[in-house]
Amino acid sequence: MRQATAETGVLVYAFTCGYITLPTTYFIAGGEGKTKVPACSFLIDHPDGLAVFDTGFSDRFVGLEDGLGKIVDMPEEHPIAVRLEALDVDPGAVQWIINSHLHLDHAGGNRMLPNATVIVQEQEWDFGFAGEDGAYSTQDFDIGQTVKKVRGEHDVFGDGSVTVFPTPGHTPGHQSARIRTATGEAVLAGDCCNFRRSLDEMKMPENVYNADHYRGSLESLSSLRRAGARIFYGHDPDFWSTVPQATELNMATIQS
């Protein structure tokens, strides 16, 4: 991969880091049957350093066929460290992990980026230890890494090109990322917007932490999309199949 410079601006790469199969209502109200969805991760190459937005499932799920292995599919080439190494990126060189939230399909690979500082909303970090939600596994994120707990918007590199902003509802401290590239603006939504249909129809999952907050987050994304941003939906298998993997993304070609 080419390296980001002042001339190229920020470069973004997408990876699938495992799959999970759940009732479709987990992702959108009224959904039928079950849906196998990707765990989505992104490498953000900034001239001043590397960041990863969400780290997918842990490599402990590779080859697992019982327990969560019945619903989680983690091919051996999918852990975030393996994905990065395939691009000749040293996982130890990643400076920042931006966790949209700390569920096991979003923070499972954190430990594979050993030198990174985790950027997470303070409310999310605290809730991850509360024991109220079984989708949190502290063995994924309570691992001794430096943690930068933020409140509200945060400018990661200090130049406005990579900004995290709160999008609560799925969890109390969920956040998304807005990225300015030479080819357009990207919004990495995470689980505040699972499917394209979620935004098109303003439809939430059947069970959310806070419905009013979730609806407000969808409205914020809708405004960004109307302004021209490319939304990367958190778990949409149809949309994700159109996103080039492990290659530099051109936002002008993303149909969101």
Rank of each mutant, 00 (worst) to 15 (best):
T171Q: 00
H170K: 09
Y214A: 09
D54E: 15
A227I: 07
P244S: 08
G9M: 03
G56N: 06
Q245N: 09
E248P: 14
T16D: 11
E206L: 11
S100D: 03
T167W: 00
D88A: 11
G190E: 01
C40W: 01
L113Q: 09
L249P: 01
A4S: 13
E132G: 09
Y136S: 05
S222M: 13
G109W: 02
P79F: 05
I80Y: 03
Q139L: 12
D236S: 08
A189K: 00
L84H: 02
P172W: 02
R226V: 13
L224Q: 07
E122W: 05
P244M: 06
D236K: 08
S222V: 10
V150R: 00
T5V: 11
V52K: 03
T5L: 07
L249H: 02
S198I: 08
E248G: 09
Y214C: 08
N115D: 06
I97P: 05
H213R: 15
G131W: 07
R226G: 06
E201T: 11
Q145K: 09
V94R: 02
T21C: 02
R2A: 11
A211F: 12
P244E: 09
V82T: 12
G173M: 04
L218W: 04
L102E: 01
T8R: 07
R197C: 12
G31W: 00
A86I: 05
H106I: 04
W125E: 03
E77F: 09
A81W: 12
G169E: 00
A246S: 13
P237F: 13
D142H: 13
F42H: 09
G18Y: 00
G92M: 08
P205Y: 00
T24Y: 06
F42Y: 13
L22N: 10
W240N: 05
V89H: 04
G228I: 12
I179T: 02
G190T: 01
L249E: 04
D159R: 10
V72F: 00
A186K: 01
G49L: 14
S256P: 13
A86H: 11
Y209S: 02
E77C: 10
A6I: 10
E219R: 13
G190N: 05
E153N: 15
T35Y: 02
I98Y: 03
S217V: 03
K149I: 02
L249K: 01
D105N: 14
T163K: 12
H101Y: 12
K203F: 10
K34Q: 11
H78P: 06
N115T: 04
T55H: 01
L188N: 00
G56R: 07
E65V: 10
G18E: 00
P237I: 15
F53T: 07
G30W: 01
F129I: 04
R60M: 09
L249D: 01
S241W: 14
G63R: 00
V243S: 03
A246K: 04
P47E: 02
D200T: 13
G69R: 03
I28W: 03
H103L: 03
H174Q: 11
V62L: 05
R151H: 14
D105C: 15
R197E: 14
M112S: 13
T138M: 14
M251N: 09
I254R: 09
G131P: 02
N115Y: 08
A186L: 14
A229W: 06
S217P: 11
T183V: 07
K148H: 13
G234V: 08
E32V: 08
N194F: 15
C40H: 03
S223T: 15
M1Q: 12
R2S: 10
D238R: 13
D191E: 08
F239D: 05
